[in-house]
Structure formats: C-alpha cells, structure tokens
Deep mutational scan, measured.
Amino acid sequence: RLTVMSLQESGLKVNQPASFAIRLNGAKGKIDAKVHSPSGAVEECHVSELEPDKYAVRFIPHENGVHTIDVKFNGSHVVGSPFKVRVGEP
C-alpha cells in the first residue's frame, strides 16, 4: 500500500511550487497525478523518482481556493485520493 507523505493541506501560495512525496512500499507500477483548480482547469503534476521506492509529485497552483489532487497508481486512486489542498488565505 502506498504512503503519501508531507502533503501540505493549507498555506500554499499561487504560482509557487508545491510538492509532496509518495513511498511505494515495494509496489511496482506507474504514478499519475492531476490537480483540479477551483475554476475547473486540470493540470498534470510532475512526478519524479527521488529514490527507487520514493517519488516526488510537484505542481504549481495558479489561483486561490481549494484544489483537488487526484493521485493514481496503476490507474486506481491511492488511499485518501482525491486530496484537497487550500491555496491562499481562507
């Protein structure tokens, strides 16, 4: 089962990169992540390998409000996905 680490749920800033990590815990497959902005825009997140069992997911929010992040592994949502994060002040 995958572990999502260091996902900041609030206090993110517009046009500043945000990232979190995913540990695969021995699982093999493909991570896919997309961020949905409050206006409905959908953007791919950048996924990069940090070490053999750990990946970083990076995105840049372009507007204030609550964004939804879909994180999928081999086509299925990971536990807790979709995640909600707040950009800007509430």
Rank of each mutant, 00 (worst) to 15 (best):
K13H: 08
E89N: 13
F73H: 12
V66A: 09
A27W: 02
C45I: 14
M5G: 13
R86Q: 14
E89W: 07
N64W: 04
S10Y: 03
Y55S: 10
A33H: 01
V87W: 00
V42A: 12
A56F: 14
G29W: 01
E43F: 15
S81F: 03
L12P: 01
F59K: 00
F83V: 07
C45G: 12
Y55V: 13
I60K: 08
S10N: 06
N64P: 10
P82R: 01
R23F: 07
R23N: 09
S76F: 12
P17L: 04
A41D: 10
Q8T: 13
N74C: 09
G88A: 09
L50G: 08
K28G: 03
E9Q: 02
V85A: 10
G40T: 04
S37V: 12
G88M: 04
L12F: 04
S76A: 09
V66E: 14
S76P: 07
F59I: 10
D53Y: 09
D32H: 05
Q8A: 07
V4S: 09
S39E: 11
L50N: 13
G88W: 01
E43A: 02
E63V: 12
V57S: 08
H46C: 06
D32S: 12
Q8G: 03
I31C: 11
N74I: 08
R58M: 05
R23Y: 02
I31Y: 02
Q16V: 12
R1C: 13
N74S: 11
V71I: 11
K72F: 09
C45W: 02
H36M: 08
S6V: 07
F59W: 14
G75Q: 09
R58V: 06
P52A: 11
T68D: 09
S19A: 04
S76L: 08
K28I: 12
D32M: 11
T68K: 07
E9T: 15
G11I: 15
E49K: 14
F59P: 00
N74L: 07
S76Y: 09
F73P: 01
S6Q: 07
F83I: 15
K28F: 04
P52D: 11
G40E: 10
F73L: 03
A21C: 03
T68R: 11
V42S: 07
K72L: 13
K72D: 12
V87M: 01
E9P: 02
R23S: 10
G29E: 05
Y55L: 10
E51Y: 06
G75D: 07
V71F: 04
G29S: 04
R86A: 08
K13E: 14
C45D: 01
L24P: 01
V71L: 13
Q16M: 05
F83L: 15
D53P: 04
F59V: 06
H62P: 14
H67M: 08
T3A: 06
M5D: 12
V87A: 07
I60M: 14
G29A: 03
S81Y: 02
D53E: 06
D32E: 06
K13M: 08
A18K: 03
E44K: 02
T3N: 15
D53W: 03
F20D: 00
D32W: 05
V14M: 02
A56M: 09
E63Y: 09
P82S: 02
A18D: 00
F83M: 05
N15K: 11
V4W: 11
V42I: 08
Q8E: 06
V57Q: 01
V71E: 00
G65Q: 02
V66R: 09
L7D: 09
D32T: 15
Q16D: 05
K28R: 10
A27G: 10
A27D: 15
V57W: 02
G11A: 10
S48Q: 12
V14F: 01
D53S: 11
R23V: 14
E51A: 08
G29F: 03
E44P: 01
V85S: 15
E49L: 12
E51W: 04
L7H: 06
E51L: 04
F20N: 04
A41P: 12
S39V: 11
A21D: 08
F73S: 05
E9V: 02
V57I: 07
S19G: 06
T3Q: 11
Q8D: 14
H46A: 12
E89Q: 10
S37C: 06
E51C: 13
E49R: 12
V4G: 08
V42Q: 15
S10I: 04
L24I: 01
N74P: 03
S10W: 01
E63F: 04
C45P: 07
P82W: 01
V57P: 01
V87L: 02
F73N: 12
V85L: 13
G29L: 03
H67V: 10
G29I: 01
K34R: 09
V78I: 12
M5W: 05
F83R: 04
H77I: 06
S6M: 15
E89Y: 08
N15W: 02
E9I: 02
K72Y: 06
